[in-house]
Design a protein around this nucleic acid. Structure first.
Lengths: 221, 221
DNA sequence: GTCTATAGTCGGATAGAC
DNA sequence: GTCTATCCGACTATAGAC
């Protein structure tokens, strides 16, 4: 029973911390806000996580684990496809479309885990001391596998600069709808990204991704 | 002479504040950091700007003014071109290329004003109370004029959703090189965005912009 | 494991001499 | 206009009772 309670307190604090850090940032979030949101005593932070910074690190750890678990299947699928000798461009393109579509869902939908996304986006813009882990365990592997796919589709080697640049521009297509969300909503007169809006974004992005790949294809024009 | 000194103190504080707010964010920057960086007394903040928040507002004001002044010529040029009845697609595309190129320079070059860009990017991600002014005076007019240009190039009306979405994806192409700068540098093995790197980015982005416009063109395929 | 109480620090803002 | 000194509140972290 004491184990049960322990876990409940620590994990309630962790979950609340995801929300609060996402909303106010590390500096903007106070320990009092964190414990009030979680409904736990203020001493729970040093007790379970050593310090406020330790709690933040635990949040990052949790995000990495969660996101990797969610991506695992898709990444494996792409990895296996890339190792097949008879992979067609059509199949590769379908894999990329699928990846982009689910990426857009995770990034923009309020249903999945908006707070984790917020924190990840914040870390990109001001990398803190945890950014190295973020990069090594999550960003690099994901970016790499996408680069492999892109490289195959434009007829280049996966280590080449063109493939990396091209991959980054493909990501930029939809990441901007998160980083410049407020601008987009106001310009389009939208209240939020609902189902209809998400579909419009996906359609535009997929069309553009295809156009970009065609424009960067090396051999057969 | 007292006027001279006044101006010197207030403006030194303002300029230092741009650097410090850019580096640490509003919450992360303390009044002591601000005045130390500026080499002025701590009382200068409430004396000249009322409060730390007032100083931040003055920084935003300064950024808006500076950026608008820098864009004024190009915006006017585009505005006049769009009002010509005989504007060709080629001319419009050249104007867009020119705008995108100088946008990339401002956004990514260390020479121009990296701190102002940092603050602008931060405001996009967590809009604060000053975001409205930011949007009304800077973002909206700039986004609108780009949308007009894009709409003309894809054969749509400037108010239509497609044109707004397409404009946003075009911006995303290169904004991601700022928002996800650390990721890009590490993936490419670059130390910074130097001249060579900027050229590689510009070449890729302009090629993709053309491809996107062609893919979204309504009438003549 | 969880609580209260509090230590110790640093935050922004002010009062008042010069 | 500029300085020093200081207030007061909020912060994180800890000590120690239960």
């Amino acid at each position: 029973m004491s184990d049960k309670k322990t876990k409940a307190t620590a994990s309630r604090l962790l979950e609340a911390a995801i929300e609060v850090f996402a909303k106010y940032g590390f500096d903007g979030a106070s320990t009092r806000m964190l414990v009030n949101e979680a409904g736990v005593n203020i001493s729970a932070i040093p007790y379970y996580f050593g310090s406020k910074e330790g709690l933040y690190e635990a949040v990052i750890e949790h995000i990495i684990t969660t996101v990797l678990a969610r991506q695992e299947e898709k990444s494996k699928e792409i990895f296996q496809a890339l190792n097949k000798t008879d992979l067609t461009k059509g199949q590769a393109r379908a894999l990329l479309h699928d990846f982009v579509t689910s990426f857009i869902d995770i990034l923009l939908s309020q249903r999945t885990s908006p707070s984790m996304v917020e924190i990840m986006i914040r870390e990109q813009i001001h990398p803190s001391s945890v950014f190295d882990r973020f990069y090594d365990e999550m960003l690099k592997p994901t970016h790499e596998i996408l680069t492999h796919l892109t490289a195959f589709l434009i007829g280049r080697k996966p280590e080449c600069e063109e493939a990396i640049l091209c991959t980054h521009t493909i990501l930029g297509q939809f990441v901007i709808f998160k980083t410049h969300q407020e601008l987009m909503l106001r310009r389009a007169g939208w209240q939020q990204y609902g189902l209809r809006e998400m579909d419009a974004i996906k359609m535009m992005v997929l069309r553009n991704v295809d156009a970009i790949l065609d424009a960067n294809r090396k051999n057969e024009p």
